[in-house]
């Protein structure tokens, strides 16, 4: 055994092996090494042992208590509330969004715009046409109805509310109110909130005051066919308005004029085949806005409808 091996194997308190003993006896260096090692070990072992202070337990207790308080789990009820609150909030928000989306599909803001526009237009018409009715009298009505080649609608003696829906089947206006009573009605209409009534009043006005009586005739009436004397402002739009309704009715569906909401569809009709559904709101015809009073159509080839908040183009060319 050499010195390196001896020193590597040497342990202060371990008993030496026979080989190590033999080497140690003959090696002064290793004897010195052993003595130094023993002395070092004894010196280290003689170092004072430190102990924890008496309040170690108290301090540890306080430390753990304070930390534990921070980490202490919430009571069971708070655990429930902690999860229940966000869940409830999420459900409420979801429900609110859902309800709102339904509202939008039923009461589209575009519809409001349309009805608002119609209201304004009706007011304008009322203001313009009231004097007309005073001056033209019933003669104008007769002339106009003849010139327009429309079916003459007898005037009723009493005013009755007109159903707002013009169905495809019921193509003839059921009555026409007398001019005198109509004026009263028109004035009253300004205070009426229901747009459908307003619109109907406007329609009635058309029938009487400006003689463009709603016709069930499918033929398109060209502007030239109207009396030259009737080129009063607002007349052409009125004519178009009526024609639009007729054209739409001819597709086999009924709409509310003004709001242009489809209220019924005949089975197997063109509208039905094209995929128009009850509740759709017509936005445009042949690419022209349905509120465009100057637009004239010979035939409806395509419409755009608002359905559940989405605009859908429907081709009616077939």
């Amino acid at each position: 055994m050499d010195c390196k091996n001896f020193q590597n194997q040497f342990e202060v308190d371990a008993e030496l092996e026979k080989e190590s003993k033999q080497h140690l006896e003959g090696c002064k260096n290793c004897q010195t090494f052993r003595d130094e090692e023993v002395h070092l070990t004894r010196t280290i072992q003689s170092l004072p042992q430190v102990e924890t202070p008496k309040d170690f337990g108290f301090r540890l207790n306080a430390y753990i208590s304070s930390t534990e308080q921070v980490k202490r789990p919430l009571p069971a009820i708070w655990q429930i509330i902690r999860y229940a609150l966000p869940t409830t909030a999420a459900v409420l928000i979801f429900g609110f969004v859902l309800i709102n989306s339904n509202l939008f599909t039923n009461e589209n803001p575009n519809l409001d715009q349309i009805t608002e526009e119609n209201k304004l237009e009706l007011k304008e018409e009322s203001e313009i046409e009231t004097p007309l009715k005073d001056t033209n009298s019933s003669e104008t009505l007769a002339v106009d109805t003849e010139s327009s080649d429309q079916e003459i609608i007898p005037a009723g003696n009493s005013f009755e509310p007109v159903a707002p829906i013009i169905s495809a089947e019921r193509r003839e206006p059921e009555f026409v109110t007398p001019v005198a009573k109509k004026e009263v009605k028109i004035r009253d209409a300004k205070n009426v909130i229901n747009p459908a009534e307003n619109l109907q009043n406007a329609e009635e006005e058309d029938f009487s005051g400006s003689r463009n009586i709603a016709s069930t005739a499918p033929e398109v009436i060209t502007p030239q066919s109207t009396n030259q004397n009737d080129s009063v402002r607002g007349e052409s739009p009125k004519t178009n308005s009526v024609r639009k309704v007729d054209l739409i009715n001819n597709l086999g569906m009924a709409v509310i004029e003004g709001s242009w909401k489809v209220t019924s569809i005949g089975k197997g009709s063109r509208a039905d085949r094209a995929g128009i559904k009850v509740g759709d709101i017509l936005i445009s015809i042949n690419g022209t806005s349905i509120t465009d009073r100057n637009a004239q159509f010979a035939r409806i080839n395509s419409v755009r409808v608002l359905r559940k908040g989405k605009i859908i183009s429907i081709n009616l060319a077939n």
Binding site: K54, D55, G57, N61, I64, E68
Partner: peptide, 15 residues
């Protein structure tokens, strides 16, 4: 609390 005894012992000596 795991170490309540420390507080009770008064001297803080662990028992």
């Amino acid at each position: 609390m795991a170490l309540d005894k420390y507080g009770k012992s008064g001297t803080g000596v662990l028992e």
